[in-house]
């Protein structure tokens, strides 16, 4: 491994309490502490966040686009999981 090789980290920023951390990009750093500091400089220069997560990119396991069908298609024909599937008379309130 290259001696200068810093790890790649994915950066997630929470813009305010009540919202989830959202992926904003990635950066290189020698370790996680430095990744946080760099992320603060790179991704929150205009008050974009109040909390940062950094995750080593090689620790993320992603589903493959090829599996999109078997993974996600089955839910497409399960319309009964949505509330709009059911006919409730207009006269019935609070439902």
């Amino acid at each position: 491994m290259n001696k200068n090789h810093w790890k790649l980290y994915e950066v997630f920023v929470r813009s305010k309490n009540g919202l989830a951390h959202k992926h904003v990009g990635s950066l290189h750093a020698a370790d996680a502490d430095m990744a946080i500091k760099n992320a603060r400089d790179v991704y929150t220069r205009r008050s974009e966040g109040i909390s940062i997560w950094v995750v080593p990119s090689d620790q993320i396991t992603a589903s493959s686009p090829d599996e999109k069908e078997p993974l996600f298609a089955p839910s497409d024909d399960k319309v009964y999981r949505h509330p709009t599937f059911y006919d409730i008379p207009d006269d019935v309130e609070h439902m």
């Binding site: 001696k3 200068n4 090789h5 020698a30 370790d31 430095m34």
Partner: peptide, 11 residues
């Protein structure tokens, strides 16, 4: 860059 990496390894 090298020093930062050495420090990170030590830590």
């Amino acid at each position: 860059r090298e020093a930062a990496l050495a420090y990170a390894e030590k830590e």
